[in-house]
């Protein structure tokens, strides 16, 4: 398979299920996307849309006991990540692909000094000596903006605040200067003021180190400020994908409209109410055959529940899966509150 030179990662038709006692839950149902060098790709969706599962599967960090890999590939460095052995994968995690998790309060080992937690991967992957790794941990803490780093490396996680811990987690992730950084809801558990700091930090470090970032989030505000491109996920599928500009100003799929319409904007006219999306996402142990958004879609047509729509391409980057773009479909205007027009 010929890989586009701009792409550092190509995911094709990824399908992942979980075995539960209630039956098989299809978390990811055929997801495809590319990640370009030095870009930030945001994957947006509600909880349960499969965005975190997609991210964790690239790192092969899903629990072995009940994860069922149904198919697809993820080509990185000419190799399919999903087919690497555990040993090979250990050499990818850290130096090639690193990850930042959602909850900084629980993602550091409470019984180990933070310096040692950073040194661990330095020593394992870069073969640094204890002293060298220690020195480098201090540098890394400084890099992520932790004051008094020489003292801080000797402290335990409980001596750090939530925002500081997330900085430590980022330092751990960036220790070996990975080519890809996967950030799984990195700001969700933080205070709003801290969120902005962490996002700024991520963006700044990305420029310095030149990694590509996959940013998993449910917060469109976060996306707008840092991402280059957006993939909107719903019920285990990508339903719309495009540059941030295209997706925000010219969204093409009623679910994206719904997402955008439900963000409160300070500038919005008070007469334009927030429009919530009615209902809730489908049960993924028995996902709908057609477009999964049908049940909540105000523009639903007879064809919608019968078959998942093809992707319609609008520009080099922008595509969406919606039956409304079929030439036989009626012309529909997005709600006034959503920026763009068709």
């Amino acid at each position: 398979m010929a890989m586009n030179n701009d792409n550092i990662l190509e995911v094709r038709d990824l399908r992942i299920s979980f075995g539960t006692y209630a039956g098989e839950v299809q978390a990811v149902r055929g997801v495809s996307f590319d990640l370009r060098r030095r870009e930030t790709l945001a994957i947006v969706g509600e909880s349960g849309s499969g965005k975190s599962v997609t991210a964790k599967s690239l790192m092969r960090l899903l629990p072995e006991a009940n994860t069922i890999f149904k198919g697809g590939e993820a080509i990185f460095d000419g190799r399919d990540l999903l087919k690497l052995s555990e040993k090979q994968m250990q050499r990818v995690r850290g130096p090639k692909i690193a990850m930042v998790f959602q909850d900084p309060m629980t993602s550091l080992d409470p019984t180990m000094k933070v310096g040692n937690q950073i040194s661990e991967s330095l020593r394992k992957h870069l073969g640094m000596s204890r002293a060298k790794a220690r020195e480098r941990s201090v540098e890394l803490l400084k890099l992520v903006g932790i004051p008094n780093a020489e003292e801080r490396v000797k402290q335990y996680p409980h001596q750090f605040s939530g925002g500081m811990r997330q900085r430590v987690v980022i330092a751990i992730a960036l220790a070996c200067e990975p080519q890809i950084l996967i950030a799984d809801e990195p700001t969700t558990a933080l205070d709003v003021t801290i969120q902005a700091q962490i996002l700024d930090l991520l963006r700044e470090l990305q420029e310095k180190i030149g990694t590509s970032v996959i940013l998993i989030t449910h917060d469109l505000g976060v996306v707008a400020s840092v991402a280059d491109r957006i993939a909107v996920m719903y019920a285990g599928k990508i339903v719309e994908m495009g540059t941030v500009r295209e997706t925000f100003y010219d969204p093409q799929m009623p679910y994206t409209w719904g997402l955008l319409a439900s963000i409160p904007l300070p500038t919005a006219d008070r007469s334009q109410d927030l429009i919530p999306i009615p209902g809730s996402p489908p049960d993924m142990s028995d996902p709908p055959k057609g477009c999964p958004f049908t049940a909540r879609c105000p523009y639903a047509m007879r064809v919608c529940p019968t078959e998942f729509p093809e992707y319609t391409t609008f520009s080099a980057e922008h595509k969406a899966a919606c039956w409304l773009h079929h030439p036989m479909a009626p012309n529909v205007e997005p709600p006034a509150r959503v920026g763009g027009t068709r």
Partner: peptide
């Protein structure tokens, strides 16, 4: 989570 993170370091 911190065990997942330890695995994510490639240990």
């Amino acid at each position: 989570d911190y065990i997942t993170l330890a695995k994510a370091k490639g240990l």
